[in-house]
């Protein structure tokens, strides 16, 4: 479903993503983890076809994203990392706009819009301008927007940021169901609980390089060299991304405090 082949991106001399190879299958939820500035957003933007890579290619359902961007984008739903929306449109108008662009049949579009609005608990505010929405409410509209076009593949850049626990749970359920019906989900997150509970596989990226891919259990095995030790995903993450130094730092801070 999603394939990245030697995907690289340089911003000037800064290599944001280096030779990334990746495959995600249909029906899978893939979690993308990594420290700040590791290249998660950059990777997602390239896979969506809105950022051209310095080298390498990517395919969505066998369609080359950079050769046939329009065809590929019609298969994709994307939720950006910051929910920038037209502040002078209402949520309903915003969704209609997306529906029109995607040429969804109007009556079907309307019923889907109503469905999503009530799903996210926004129907009361559906005709208020988006400028009056809170961050979390805008995030929900962006997620609804991505689902509206019945995509085959969903890309979500930190989808639960700003959502209350109940809504975050809702989004997780929606994505799980989407995958169970044969869709593919690719999400980046900093919330390890999401990665552990929800994702079939995770990938960890650091300084633009994919340093580990697999199920959480596989990664545990690899990191601990086969010992059957219990280790939390947090410690695993820190271990893989070289977070041991943080422990030193924290010790240092503590010693300063005690002075």
């Amino acid at each position: 479903m999603i394939r990245a082949i030697e995907l690289s991106k340089k911003y000037g001399s800064n290599e944001a993503v280096k030779n990334l190879n990746l495959e995600v299958k249909a029906g899978e939820v893939f979690g993308f983890l990594g420290p700040n500035g590791a290249g998660k957003t950059t990777t997602i933007k390239m896979l969506v076809g809105m950022l051209s890579p310095t080298s390498g290619t990517a395919e969505i359902c066998g369609v080359d994203v950079f050769k046939y961007p329009v065809k590929a984008k019609s298969l994709i739903g994307y939720v950006p990392d910051s929910p920038d929306v037209y502040e002078k449109l209402s949520a309903r108008e915003f969704l209609r706009f997306v529906g029109d662009i995607r040429r969804i049949e109007p009556s079907k579009c309307e019923s889907r819009i109503s469905e999503f609005l009530s799903l996210f608990g926004l129907e009361e505010r559906a005709d208020d301008l988006l400028g009056s929405y809170s961050h979390g409410m805008r995030q929900k509209v962006c997620i609804a927007q991505a689902l509206l076009g019945e995509p085959k593949v969903m890309f979500l850049d930190e989808p639960t940021v700003g959502l209350d626990p109940r809504s975050a749970r809702l989004v997780k359920d929606i994505l799980r169901r989407f995958a169970d019906r044969g869709g593919t989900v690719f999400l980046s997150t900093h919330i390890l609980e999401i990665a552990e509970r929800m994702c079939d596989r995770i990938g960890i990226i650091q300084e633009g390089q994919l340093i580990a891919v697999g199920t959480v259990d596989e990664l545990r095995c690899k990191a601990l060299g086969g010992t059957d030790q219990e280790i939390s995903l947090e410690d695993l993450f820190l271990k893989l991304t070289g977070g041991e130094e943080y422990k030193e730092l924290i010790k240092h801070l503590e010693s300063e405090e005690s002075l």
Partner: peptide, 14 residues
């Protein structure tokens, strides 16, 4: 379109 350009960039349009 400013910061909202992402919306067009991820849609199937030319």
């Amino acid at each position: 379109e400013a910061s909202r350009f992402w919306l067009l960039a991820c849609q199937p349009c030319t």
